[in-house]
Write a protein that binds this DNA or RNA. Structure first.
Length: 565
RNA sequence: CGGGGAGUAGCGCAGCCUGGUAGCGCGCUACGUUUGGGACGUAGAGGUCCCGGGUUCGAAUCCCGGCUCCCCGACCA
């Protein structure tokens, strides 16, 4: 491709809309253009990389026994009502009507559709296992898209689904997918690590995320530097910090005017946060729930949702709290009746806690469990943080941020039951298929690859995902001998099957070098009057500072060698 | 959804407070001179100043309403 004809122009300054480096680079190179919040057009430069990433994914999926399919984006809403997810997805699901007034959705994921497709061909356990995948556009009306391609509302995703007759078969495929994912990230230049994750409300037992550690990541994960345990903070198990254990004293009200937060109590009563109990008020499927944790910990929504087994969980509004006659700031699970109380394990570690008194401006001293507080449910509902102790080995956790580049999880039979995808087992009984599902965001993978592979001058993507292999620049293209020599190398590289972008513009050397660095293809070839006098061309790797000078007739083969080693 | 910020030429921005013919840099076009790390000169092209109302002789500028985009938060008893 000749740059003079190429759709796309580099920018000399960063567009003001970008914050993160990958976003800035993708805008400056002209890879992408924003059309609306979280909605992007992809220029040829981006498509070339995205296609390479998609093909790497295809190769690994096929090698793992996957079969490619394509499921519709436009789907009847009825199907989503049948699975129950029309309700659970909420406003993230884009709903619309067709011309006949039929309710439709733009699919945010494809479990329903794939289950129907496989169901049609599934009769016997002999048909299993089955592994299918697709690379298809998803629509999710995210609350807040951000960071360029990191979180968008319309995006391509590889989603794979497996169907099994038993758990052993699911485990086997799951492990094969995990390995395939490691291969994919490694081939794309992404140092992803595997962490334990929450499998969501529909949940089977296992779920893992693949995270590329990065400051700009949206996910916080916890890892143990000693035993290697790593998990999403939403999921991580941990040992609750110790708290003073003393003789239990009788409960006693204390006047605490204007003291509403844990910090207020710490400042005024001379206690530590671990000597207090806090309550957070939620609405779970429309029912009010008190979630209680020790004051030094925070409630983890995801864990709470899992413990309750509810579909919709949100904080109660101020109005709802007031309507229930609860005194905000002094609310407490102690002595509260008629409201479901869920407590974290931490309330049993420590004694003589300070808790709200359920009347304005009062708290209670010396609350002890289980003497004074008998929750309906005790579970792990506290958020793990850096510094907390690893449940396995007791070492202090480290917390870090990262970009989630892949997610695998065991679905179980939620969809096969809802949509009646059953098979006949050897005993002649009908059984719902056991499912697994496996996702990778293609555009997010590119964003992560750019974020990881860059320097102050621009991108340095590996050849496997770089838009082109070679940036061929002719300096002083108005000189006939330069144009002729550069044309000639261009043709040779094309003949050799090398992906080359030929900078045949008449711009100055500085412009071309800067664009070459910005675009960051692995190899740069320069034809100039200076080297031409010696009958040579200059060949340089993006990641190295020194260039080699090679005879013109050997240039193409030299490049080919560089790219294959 | 709450809180901040911003919409003026392809990109980056100034102008607004204090209303009076819409500017600068980069990029773009033409010609000439340059020629290995974002060259120089000359001459040009390019704008519904986010949208709609209002005030005014006159609005990018003041007032009212709306839209869009970016960032932070979504953790609180």
């Amino acid at each position: 491709m000749r740059l003079s004809q190429f759709l796309g122009r580099t920018l000399r300054s960063n567009p003001s809309e970008a914050e993160t480096d990958n976003h800035k680079l993708m805008l400056r190179t002209g890879m992408i253009q924003q059309l609306a919040a979280g909605v992007y057009s992809y220029a040829p430069l981006a498509i070339r990389s995205l296609t390479k990433i998609a093909n790497i994914i295809r190769e690994e999926m096929n090698a793992a026994g996957g079969q490619e399919v394509k499921l519709p984006t436009l789907q009847p809403r009825e199907l989503w009502q049948q699975s129950g997810r029309d309700a659970t997805f909420g406003p993230d699901l884009i709903r619309l009507q067709d011309r006949r007034g039929r309710e439709m959705v733009l699919a945010p994921t494809h479990e329903e559709a794939v289950t129907l497709l496989v169901k049609q061909h599934l009769q016997s356990y002999r048909d299993l296992p089955m592994l299918v995948y697709q690379i298809q556009t998803k629509f999710r009306d995210e609350v807040r898209p951000r960071g360029g391609l990191v979180r968008v509302r319309e995006f391509d995703m590889k989603d794979g689904y497996s169907f099994h007759a038993d758990d052993e078969s699911l485990d086997e495929t799951y492990q094969r997918m995990v390995q395939a994912y490691h291969n994919i990230f490694q081939r794309c230049g992404i140092p992803a690590i595997q962490i334990e994750a929450d499998s969501g409300a529909i949940g089977g037992k296992d779920s893992h995320e693949f995270i590329m550690p990065s400051e700009i990541g949206e996910d916080t994960f916890i890892h143990c530097p000693k035993c290697g345990y790593a998990a999403n903070a939403e999921r991580a198990a941990f040992t609750r910090p110790a708290a003073p254990s003393e003789a239990e004293l009788p409960m006693e009200d204390v006047h605490t005017p204007g003291q509403k937060t844990i910090q207020d109590l710490v400042d005024n009563l001379g206690v530590t946060p671990a000597q207090t109990l806090k309550v957070v008020i939620y609405m779970a499927d429309g029912e009010m729930v008190f979630a209680t944790v020790r004051g030094d910990l925070d409630v983890n929504d995801i864990k709470l949702k899992r413990a309750l087994g509810c579909i919709d969980l949100r904080l109660a509004t101020d109005e709802e709290v007031a309507a229930a006659g609860i005194s905000a700031g002094s609310a407490s699970a102690v002595g509260m009746t008629g409201i479901k109380i869920v407590a974290d394990e931490s309330i049993n570690i420590g004694t003589n806690f300070v808790a709200g008194a359920n009347k304005a401006d009062y708290h209670i001293l010396n609350v002890n469990t289980p003497r004074d507080l008998k929750p309906d449910l005790i579970a792990d509902i506290a958020m793990a943080e850096g510094g907390h102790a690893c449940l396995n080995c007791g070492t202090a956790f480290e917390a870090a941020r990262g970009i989630e580049v892949g997610h695998v999880f065991k679905l179980g039979t939620f969809f096969s039951e809802a949509l009646e995808a059953t098979f006949q087992d050897p005993e002649g009984q009908q059984q719902p298929a056991i499912m697994g599902c496996y996702g990778i965001g293609v555009g997010r993978l590119l964003a992560a690859a750019v974020e990881q592979n860059r320097d102050e001058k621009g991108m340095c993507l590996p050849a496997s995902v770089a838009p082109f292999h070679v940036y061929l620049a002719g300096l002083n293209m108005d000189k006939e001998e330069v144009a002729a020599a550069a044309d000639s190398i261009y043709e040779e590289l094309l003949d050799a099957g090398v992906e080359v972008l030929y900078d045949d513009r008449t711009d100055s050397a500085g412009v071309k070098f800067n664009d070459a660095d910005l675009l960051g293809f692995p190899v740069r070839v320069v034809v100039s009057p200076r080297n031409l006098k010696e009958g040579k061309a200059e060949i340089k790797l993006r990641i190295e500072s020194e260039a080699n000078v090679v005879a013109l007739e050997n240039a193409a083969s030299y490049v080919t060698t560089l790219l294959t080693t």
